[in-house]
Nucleic acid binder design. Structure first.
Lengths: 348, 348
DNA sequence: GCAAGCACCGTGAGCGCTCACAGTCGTTAA
DNA sequence: TTAACGACTGTGAGCGCTCACGGTGCTTGC
């Protein structure tokens, strides 16, 4: 493999980009007039380096345009510098959830600022889950950030077994640490607000029953209403989508035409509910007031704009990476539940 | 670093997961009774391996649970097995675009099926852009998949200079290969459809003028209308968001209250336009018919559902990874422009 | 005056793998 | 019979780095 010199006109096809091997640590060392070890020390921020050689190394570093070979480094340190963002969800739909997009963006940014990179992995099918596990076990990743809406995701247990640092987004009943919004508290906030607006037939479109959001937010609703809950005013949506919201609302409307308020467990769902309400001739917030959950971008884009519960997404993202990084560093880090906030707009 | 045995109760904190070094290729070789070389050959699908040793190796492979150390492999092959998905966009908003989410999902899946992984990188700020460049130059990635809505993204040029295989999503004026939907053709399709419905005051909410989608779709609109275009019926939105759509539509409505049809350059924009229309008391599709672009999930969730132009997202994703993979393998691969399709719903 | 301590530095070993090369051994052609 | 060839296999080298160790030479305390 000595096709180093451009003079060779016959490009060897496949193995052709082995050419321009960047400068190695040794090149830098030579240029700076020091040894490998010294360069390595400054690269790793170690002390015990004289000001003179430090300057020389820095000079050589910029002069050569050196950039470390992560593979070589990982080989010895056993740290990859990447973390896996795993999306465990059979439905493709999840990807259209603005909450998730925001989370992904924030995590990417946070991780990037901190020097590691994020690899995105899907874990919707068993084959994909197996791939995630292999990937993790192979040490390709320093830790995994698991996002899964369904309670009792098998991947969580398996990940826990491998022992690789993991944090899950959303309540997780197992031993794994998690970071989540205070769903129950948020639901109480909204329910209380609806009650305070002097409504008495308060319904709820809850999330799917097999998701933490689905059960927690419903629990909050029940907490606040106490013995005034009417089971016929409760409907679980089949998924977190607009159409599921519409369907659930239609059901509710059929069953209890006299409802005058509704707490919907997600903004996307609320968009659908709003449509169903308006299609049924109800005015919002005149006849019926409606409150959502998430405060995603869509909440301020509906007509009327949605009163909703804000999930502290930036804080959740920050918590997620902080807990994960702590775990990776061997420090212990507890699960966190972050407070939510009522955002009043016009729908309620 | 010999805290191998659990007996040691004092976990050493930081360097604690160096423990369980998985089986190496040598372990497998020993177990199979062959040499490193032979195991490596079967791992890399090479031939020149006798059926007997092939079987022995496979046996040993599963028995040990061996999984290759990618760092070690990359160190010698100079291939990382990862590709970077770079999002070059100052606005955070882009992340809420369902089109993008779908694209990201498809690419992740396609790449995963094919054995490589996707690392997500943001390139909104200069610092982030620099990081991408360094990352690419360091050989941490075999190729980059650049998604950028703005024409003339500086990153495209810089990436081209580095020589690392790159493909861009969306029309790209430079030498870089790209994959894009036929925006112009799609716009013609929709405009023609609106004309055929016997409307004569056809307006358009175009995308931002500094995006390929913004100019191409507007060009298609003009193509089809010919000398019947009225400049006062054209408005560029400031971004691809619901509120920008609403604002543009309001402007149009003020300027030309008599408009009876509107082609909106994206579904998100169309949602806003629809709201503005309805808020102004216009019925859709009675008074005004409206056509969107993208066929994102939201298009079928509005009331009425949007007639729109479908972008062949799965094909785009497939084209993107195919072109990129070809480039990485040293094969040449041309840019692709994929056909769009009219999807008729109720808004027009 | 010398031992001890300190700050700094260079070097060897080795991380786990792939690749090229140099075998070995059975088979076929001359 | 022997040379040549093919299929298969083992081995050395080396990818670029970090880490531990063992030097230097200098200061300090006695």
């Amino acid at each position: 493999m000595s096709d180093e010199a451009p003079p060779h006109p016959k490009s060897r096809g496949a193995a052709r980009r082995a050419q321009r091997r960047g400068p190695t640590i040794e090149d830098v060392a030579d240029l700076a007039g020091v040894s490998r070890g010294t360069v390595s020390r400054v690269l790793n921020g170690a002390h015990h380096v004289s000001p003179a050689s430090l300057a020389a190394v820095h000079q050589a570093l910029t002069q050569t345009g050196y950039v470390v070979n992560q593979s070589a480094r990982s080989l010895v340190t056993r740290r990859s510098g990447t973390i896996a963002f795993v999306l465990s969800e059979p439905q493709d739909r999840l990807f259209e959830d603005p909450v998730l997009a925001t989370l992904l963006r924030s995590c990417t940014q946070l991780l990037g600022d901190q020097g590691s990179s994020l690899v995105l992995m899907l874990a919707g099918t068993p084959a994909e889950r197996a791939r995630v596990l292999t990937f993790a076990r192979a040490g390709h990743t320093d830790g995994v950030l698991l996002v899964s809406t369904h309670t009792g995701d098998p991947l969580a247990a398996q990940l826990a077994e491998t022992g690789i640092p993991t944090v899950v987004c959303g309540r997780e009943p197992r031993q794994l640490p998690f970071v989540a919004a205070d769903d129950r508290g948020g639901a109480r906030l909204m329910t209380r607000y609806l009650m305070d607006r002097d409504r008495h037939r308060i319904a709820t479109v809850a999330g799917p029953a097999d998701t933490p959001g689905g059960v927690e937010r419903l629990a909050g609703f029940r907490d606040e209403l106490g013995d005034r809950v009417d089971e016929r005013l409760i409907e679980n949506a089949s998924a977190y989508t607009i159409s599921a919201g519409r369907e659930a609302m239609d059901l509710l409307l059929n069953r209890s035409p006299d409802l005058d308020a509704v707490f919907v467990a997600s903004d996307l769902l609320a968009v659908g509910a709003l449509q169903a309400l308006q299609a049924a001739g109800r005015t919002v917030p005149g006849d019926v007031i409606i409150g959502g959950f998430d405060d995603s971008a869509i909440a301020s884009a509906t007509a009327p704009p949605l009163t909703t519960i804000r999930q502290p997404l930036p804080l959740i993202a920050a918590g997620l990476v902080e807990v994960l990084l702590d775990r990776i560093a061997g420090r212990s880090a507890d699960s966190r539940i972050l407070p939510t906030e009522l955002v009043i707009r016009e729908s309620a």
